[in-house]
């Protein structure tokens, strides 16, 4: 049965296509949230070596920083856990203006 195609392609489908076409890919995943986090635990952002990305781990607040870290993870192969809190000029360049906190796991797609 052919079903209606979802309007926005799934990040993991995009990640598979990218990897199979030879691109380096990292998968970022929300693993923990506190307070009013914009994306639920389990949400994915996928990133390639050139910084192309698909999906989201927040409402667009921290994706830029995650993409930068993800490119390093693709090179090193070592997973990282990132934590983002409320936007605070002194502590973070980026943050969540909604007041929540999130932890994001970033790993290379083998």
């Amino acid at each position: 049965m052919i079903l209606g195609q979802a309007f926005v392609p799934d990040p993991l489908t995009v990640a598979e296509q990218w990897r199979l076409s030879g691109r380096g890919v990292a998968i970022a995943t929300v693993i923990e949230t506190w307070g009013s986090a914009p994306r639920p635990v389990g949400s994915h952002l996928v990133v390639d070596t050139d910084g192309n990305f698909h999906g989201s781990v927040s409402g667009g607040c921290v994706e830029g920083a995650v993409v930068g870290e993800a490119i390093e993870v693709i090179t090193s192969g070592t997973s990282r856990i990132l934590e983002f809190g409320v936007a605070d000029e002194t502590a973070w360049k980026v943050g969540l203006s909604c007041g929540g906190r999130i932890r994001v796991h970033v790993e290379r797609l083998g």
């Binding site: 993991l12 990897r19 797609l109 083998g110």
Partner: peptide, 11 residues
């Protein structure tokens, strides 16, 4: 994540 795992999830 291993590519085989990702492919199994998508499948």
């Amino acid at each position: 994540m291993r590519l085989e795992h990702l492919q199994s999830i998508n499948k």
